[in-house]
Design a protein around this nucleic acid. Structure first.
Lengths: 154, 154
DNA sequence: TAGAACCCTGGAGTGCACTCGAAGCAAGCG
DNA sequence: CGCTTGCTTCGAGTGCACTCCAGGGTTCTA
């Protein structure tokens, strides 16, 4: 709900961070998938997947001998992470930056860690904001409940 | 961070839902403010405030004898609520719907309560999502920390 | 009373994140 | 063999939430 129409039919929940290291509920234990299969499991459209690749948000997807994309499990893992980052409201441009760091190799570990820590701070702050908001909603809802109860009684 | 550049310099925190019923830290205890004063305290731009009014998100703002807006404390209270709802990611169109219900009078109490309860459910779900995301971030950050510690040791 | 600073309106423009269309190639099926 | 489905690219279109502009009126300060 946080942005216009995100993840129309997102898979219901990844129970553990283990979804980052294999274990997708997919057709079979293959390690290559067509774009429509990936669209199916990620809830993203094929258009969006191609667009992700175009803007540099995917770390190089394999192609079949006829040029069609063949996504692999590591791509799905990456998309799972991207999905999480997107939930935090991180702009796509920042995710692209992170993807660039990954492409640049291991000497960017520190920068990546800092980026994730900054994101974690944002997420924590956001949760606090939402808790405040929840308090306001509770307060308002109680007001309406009281008002309606009062008007029924008389 | 959740949308592009929201609330650039939002006032730091309303300690209680009491911010919904008076108690604004404003110039003095007046009950009319110019648009730029309201922009100052809400963190919204004057443009945005006029736009809110145009689309029906403000419940009728008073005007001076020359036609300039004179916001009152109840307008600030309303904007505080709108700010909270906006933090939940509620689309502006839904907030407009809520504003319409308010304008329609007391017979919409039930509808308003339902709308707020639906929003509350969304906020709770969102908090859960963010907690999941936090777990993933913790996991990833630990991975980087371990990797960097290991590379230092050898 | 002049000038700066502020406010008005309607409408156009911006940035983000998709989302779709057009034109064409390739594979599987009855 | 034709049909359907799915894939490719590039570029244009969409919806949201602002954000800004032009051209003019108003209010405050020196």
């Amino acid at each position: 709900m946080i942005d216009s129409s995100p993840v129309p039919n997102r898979p219901k929940a990844a129970p553990r961070p283990s979804s980052l290291s294999g274990g997708h509920p997919l057709p079979e234990g293959r390690d290559h998938y067509t774009i429509s299969e990936v669209a199916e499991v990620t809830g993203l459209s094929a258009h969006t997947l191609r667009w992700y690749e175009r803007i540099g948000l995917m770390p190089h997807v394999d192609r079949s001998h006829t040029g069609q994309r063949r996504f692999r499990n590591r791509d799905l893992d990456w998309l799972a992470l991207v999905g999480k980052l997107r939930l935090t409201g991180m702009p796509v441009a920042d995710m692209v930056r992170y993807a660039e760091l990954v492409r640049e190799g291991e000497h960017t570990f520190e920068a990546r860690q800092e980026l994730l820590e900054a994101t974690r701070r944002d997420v924590r702050a956001r949760i606090e904001e939402l808790r405040d908001t929840l308090a306001v909603l509770d307060y308002k809802i109680d007001l309406y409940a009281d008002a309606r109860r009062a008007s029924e009684r008389f």
